[in-house]
Write a protein that binds this DNA or RNA. Structure first.
Lengths: 252, 252
DNA sequence: GAGTGGTCTAGACCACTTC
DNA sequence: AAGTGGTCTAGACCACTCA
């Protein structure tokens, strides 16, 4: 009958749930190379027999592997180990404050300037607002252990987030404030390297021309531009991101 | 009875499957902010009633949202919209060849040097092999539309991948070759900015000191180091990565 | 104690693909 | 035509947590 079990569920609290154990089993075989790319993994009914469970259970596991990008499935043909998608990788970028704190350094923040203006031609290359739309332009410095860590150059579209005009960015991080007022959003990131110009160099307390890591992030909410931010990190000091990738993930 | 339907499945090919429609519905509400962080979304039995389906179906959707990091669930309490995890983001780095081709430029490749040596102290800072372990050190140039695009400085652990000693890296991309011979692996990435030293600048045909984007990738397979690669991109030319993130994803 | 989510079952129908 | 995966059902038991 439904809900009962013949061996599998008599010991549910052993370690993890059944589908987690099956998932781990299959992942191990794939990641270790025991099943190399192109290999056909057992059919659902075979896995049912091996693990003594219902088809829904193995199906759930296999669907998860598809979502993780580890396998692909074709009707009538079976399920196959996928080839890793090129030299691709999934990275994760923490926010600046978390980044500094995770390095065990003290974090500080200063608002250098905050001005309201109508979008210029240059602004509109960074943030897709109408010509003349009101913007808030912020320049902030992130400090780690007393030394400049990153320079933040941010535009906020006041048409999309009018409350930002009244926020006090001298005490509150713009990124944090936005998170609290614009719950979920889409973002696009762009990483490049550039030499520090005179003003940037002075604000970061590095020589002019220092190679900097520049991270640009543009943010939308339902198609409306919210903010565009450029973060300048002195590249000679320390790095930005590190992340390992057990799977291609996020492919779809 | 099982397998039959009362309204939902009479029109299965309409658009997407039922759980995909439910998922899209809920995601839209969350991403648009209609349900802001902390909001309690309907209980499973409420969603069952709303969509006229079985609990497994809504449960599958909600489990997916948990995996995507959009919601969190607590027994007895319910399911709640999560706050976006900091300013984090999931990026994706394509491999160099795909990157160049996707820009619509012609791709070229040259092996500058390939030598076999025992691991030095400097090597071991980059790749965690035993002292004196055999390494293959490769230096390659990626070319886009005839101009140097990136410089690849790679170490391969021959203990882990002995076949690499016989590969012809003058004609085959090291990254591609490794993908074909070391199916799945874990990788760690590190992005920084650095000025081009004299040799690097010459090989990239840029002035000495040009700010470069440096991407370092270290790769393991079941704990065994496979390869460590440094990619130098002239930062003044173009960028490296861009990616948008609808959800926190990959959180676990 | 009651209600939530977490998990699992034993079936079912269907679409699609390959044979 | 046969067999695969894709999806869905109507239950069930359990663990956990809150009131």
């Amino acid at each position: 009958m439904a809900g009962d079990d013949e061996g599998a569920k008599t010991e549910p609290a052993h370690d993890r749930s059944l589908h987690q154990r099956i998932r781990a089993d299959l992942e191990e075989r794939i990641l270790s190379g025991a099943w190399s790319p192109g290999h056909r993994i057992p059919f659902e009914h075979e896995l049912m027999a091996q693990y003594g469970c219902a088809r829904m259970t193995v199906n759930r596991v296999l669907s998860g592997l598809v979502e993780a990008g580890l396998i692909e499935r074709r009707r009538r043909a079976g399920s196959f180990v996928r080839r890793p998608a090129g030299q691709s990788a999934v990275l994760r970028i923490p926010d600046v404050k978390a980044e500094v704190l995770s390095r065990g350094e003290t974090y500080g923040y200063e608002l250098i300037s905050g001005t309201r203006r109508k979008a210029t031609r240059d602004d509109r290359a960074r943030i897709a607002v109408a010509a003349g739309a009101p913007l808030l332009a912020l320049l902030c410095r992130h400090v780690a252990d007393g030394r400049p860590y990153a320079l933040e150059d941010r535009l906020i579209a006041l048409d999309s987030v009018p409350e930002a005009a009244d926020a006090d960015f001298a005490t509150e991080l713009p990124g944090t404030w936005l998170l609290g007022h614009v719950p979920w959003h889409e973002a696009e990131h762009n990483i490049s390297a550039a030499p520090a110009d005179a003003r940037t160099a002075a604000r970061l307390d590095v020589p002019v021309g220092t190679a900097c890591l520049v991270m640009e992030r543009r943010t939308w909410r339902s198609g409306q531009p919210i903010t565009a931010v450029r973060l300048w990190y002195p590249g000679d000091r320390q790095k930005l991101v590190a992340r390992f990738t057990p799977s291609t993930a996020a492919g779809r």
